[in-house]
Design a protein around this nucleic acid. Sequence first.
DNA 1: GGCTTTTGTTCACGGCTAGAGCATAAACTG
DNA 2: CAGTTTATGCTCTAGCCGTGAACAAAAGCC
Lengths: 397, 397
Amino acid sequence: MIGATTSGELRAHNRVRLLRAVHDCGATRTRSQLTRDLRLARGTASVLVAGLAEDELLHEEPAREHARGRPTQVPGPHPRGPLALAVDVREDAWELAACELGGRTETLDLRPHDGTPEGVLIPLGEAVAAHRRRLGHRVVGLGVAFAGPVRHGGLVDIAHLGWRSVDVPRLLGPDVPAPVVGNDTAFAALAEARRGRLQGVQVGLHLHVDFDLGGVLVVDGRPLGGASGAGAEFGHMPLTGGDRPCPCGAIGCWSMDVGTNALLRHVGLAHGGGKGRAQAERVLATSEEAVAANARALGRGIAALVNAHDPEVVTLSGHGVELRERAGKTLLAACEPRLMAIRRDHPPRIEGSALGWRGALVGAMESVFDAFLTPECVEMWRETGLTRVATRPSGRM
Amino acid sequence: MIGATTSGELRAHNRVRLLRAVHDCGATRTRSQLTRDLRLARGTASVLVAGLAEDELLHEEPAREHARGRPTQVPGPHPRGPLALAVDVREDAWELAACELGGRTETLDLRPHDGTPEGVLIPLGEAVAAHRRRLGHRVVGLGVAFAGPVRHGGLVDIAHLGWRSVDVPRLLGPDVPAPVVGNDTAFAALAEARRGRLQGVQVGLHLHVDFDLGGVLVVDGRPLGGASGAGAEFGHMPLTGGDRPCPCGAIGCWSMDVGTNALLRHVGLAHGGGKGRAQAERVLATSEEAVAANARALGRGIAALVNAHDPEVVTLSGHGVELRERAGKTLLAACEPRLMAIRRDHPPRIEGSALGWRGALVGAMESVFDAFLTPECVEMWRETGLTRVATRPSGRM
DNA sequence: GGCTTTTGTTCACGGCTAGAGCATAAACTG
DNA sequence: CAGTTTATGCTCTAGCCGTGAACAAAAGCC
């Protein structure tokens, strides 16, 4: 990832490696385990941990369980350490959470909304700004997930809500940290890669089923973003042979045939506009036939993507979990005949997400920490920390 | 890419960085330029270059052109330095080449073949073994490109030649270095990323048109390989709405409608089996209508992939170059209406390859150097070099 | 021919990690 | 309960690395 060239960068690099390790394991590994896993000398680990504790990045607590020797410590988030703010904006409501290093999250706010850009983003911006004022320098970033493609770091389109190039950072207002805006599917995939069923998987495919279908490839733990940031749109490939025009502007999109919009259409109910979640759940629970149609379309598309990308695992989140449970056989029956012969021998596992509906939020949090856990940002935290301590009335030494 | 943790690894890391820089620029940059580009102190560069020259990895020659000050040197491949062997196996012939650090290649052998696994691989293995004996320790690897999917590092399927899980390393025989076996499209994409039109491109899409169609995504300079190594198969997604069974075992593959097989079928001629290259070229030159059908299918598929992956550039190699030149408008006309509205504003450039038909060979070479230019392998070369020098009768010093 | 400019070389210096030796704090043993 | 065992944390030295400054070298420029 990094080209450490000087010994100073080496130190910064090892500091980040240690923080990453603590974060990725959810602050569960002991210091001695970390020392071994990162192949550090005990002395080096000592210096590193002491430095990170000094900088209010880590805080050690005694380990709960002991083996024989001297008890070891467990490095975890510092009580004044960095926080990520994360938001999941769904079609009908949003949730704001704060997350510590290690991934512990606490919901700060949860509100329904009217679906208009202003109705969503202005109250959200105010809520974020208020929490940021309260939490001060600890907030190292903001991640926001949306159910639509995101271009150039902040322009969001949600076709069926009528959002066209909505400038999210601008509408959130100036009192908000520069946000990492992302697609919910891509964030869910990131979460799955870090804390779910795609951990340690080289090539995985993640599909998120809600009102419509999003999908993205996860390579080496990272969802593929696309040039302008708007990758993660497998839903807009014509994989099921349909020719219906899609609200996205293309023709015959896979997304037209999978998701609650498709469910509602199948039983002849009104759909679109981010409405009808409750109704759709009723259909999902009762209409065998509508569920089967959804599962068939899902299976056909998965076959195409498996042919092209050869993933090791396919994970489903959102309603995908239920589709798999309710109509797994139908799904596989639609998938298998459309696989290349060479894929049929070892088809990928198709699994439900480990994170359920929380993936997008967790992924938004992860992406904030991904941005923060770099030598540059961590050094910057260190430097601003020094000035804080120097100017703090009752500063430590 | 790597986590250097000790100062020793730091040195190894910088040695590799320098070698990579020399290789990637084709041994054209001067030492002073490299020093600046890699942000090294002049003293460090001095030590590094001296070490690499000592190890017979680099060899400095005076720069041709001088500005004012003291003349600088140009580090290039050492006359006894590492060599990559690369092979491009087409449906009707193969070519074997040797490549120096920096990318200069020399064709060693070029032979037609009968298309059977044994008829291809046994003579090829003998040729490789002979050259390897001649070149000795300098050969650091072998890369072999095939026109079909490659699984688990060496099992090759070429449906229309009747190859099923052909074990390439075994058939090449034991006197051959462990080969990097890969798909021709993936290798062509790698070449394009390193020395062609995908240089510096974050997300690119490369499509290779020959008898059929291969395609792969290039992310951060690396073609995506898939879990078992058999990614790069965009040709086997049902993107054109057809329902013809494909020799690969799936249904309605895009690849059925693009390439010389499709051309021949369109004019009612026999096709398949890797035969008919000359005939196809005649059709390509004369039948406006067949070319247009190919271009339309190509355009439809490109639209789907652009929707899903949001690439910055789409590059075409093989016959793709001609399709674009002969029927570019038809291609775009089929592509555009199938793009998502948000993609239509800034659609990716569609360009011909900079490497023409040599991409697969160049990519095979690059992948050998990718494997070699790591701290581990370079240190190993150094160590074996020390023993070579120590035991060499007329060794230096 | 002397001056300027750029590059290569050498070396003292500070920073980093490894590893050894010692201190520490628990669990185990009888 | 006291000594032993075991694993960990801390401290210090040695060795390696890159930096940067001073110096040497080799050209072009006036």
